[in-house]
Simulated scan of single mutants.
Amino acid sequence: MNRICTICARGGSKGVKNKNLRELLGKPLIAHSILQAKKSGLFDVIAVSSDDEQILQVSLDYGVDYIIKRPEELASDIAPKLPAIQHCVMQVEKLKNIEFDIIVDIDATSPLRTIEDLKNSIEMFESHKDAKNLITATPSRRSPYFNLIEEKQDGYVTLSKPLKNNIVRRQDVPNSYDMNASIYIWRREEFFNANSVFTNRTILYVMPEERSFDIDSELDFEIVKMLAEKRGTLE
């Protein structure tokens, strides 16, 4: 069973300028995900997709197998990520004349995952023969049944998921999770037909909160930097 690891990294970022090249523990942010994938020994091919030439060059410097220039229409602020991953895999398959059985995407802006997270999530997915894909998340800090609220059109607020029954203990409601954008896994037959990361057979790999920060703001970056420095290494 052969596997490809994709890492998709746009050049533009409004929340954190040039975040994929921002230095973290002495390396560009994207380098940590590349080195995790390489050191895991799990992948036949590692590929980076980007619209930015500097990101592509840095990726080559850190040893990826393929760099794929992302088309402009897949690199805008409003472009969804899944088509960019599909484009990357298709281009590598053409270049290498191969079809991959398992597609794994890891996010460059979620570098706190560990190599064990990669190994365990892939093992979990491949052992679930009926699963179409896997996503990662962490237990939510706010429950939609108790303290996550949303604003209605009339300006008033309500619980996101109000309960019909009089349940007063958080332990009695379904578990809820925050997606952490760290690892996505698909089987080939589902991957190229997918238009969402959710299917009728999506499974979940749960990660702790301290490995689940996704960098979308300067505050996120500072939190990730603090946790990375505490660990001392991200590979």
Rank of each mutant, 00 (worst) to 15 (best):
V89Q: 01
P80E: 12
K152L: 15
I115N: 05
Y145T: 06
T138Y: 05
A137F: 02
A131T: 05
P71M: 06
N147I: 10
S76G: 13
R141S: 10
P139S: 10
N165H: 15
K94M: 11
V157Q: 15
N147E: 12
L148C: 08
A137C: 07
K164V: 14
R169S: 12
A84F: 06
Y184H: 06
S160F: 13
P174V: 08
I67P: 04
D101C: 02
L74R: 01
R169F: 15
E126S: 05
K119V: 12
V157H: 15
V89K: 00
R170H: 11
S160L: 15
K119F: 00
L95G: 09
K119C: 01
R142N: 10
G155N: 11
V168P: 07
I183C: 04
L95I: 07
A137G: 08
K69D: 13
D77C: 03
Y177C: 08
N97L: 15
I106C: 06
E99V: 12
D101T: 09
D117H: 12
E116W: 09
E126V: 03
I78K: 09
N147S: 11
A181I: 00
N147A: 02
A137I: 05
T138L: 02
H128G: 00
L134K: 01
T109D: 15
L163E: 14
M90H: 15
Q86G: 01
T136R: 03
E123R: 09
P144R: 00
V92A: 10
V173G: 04
K129N: 04
E73P: 01
E151S: 10
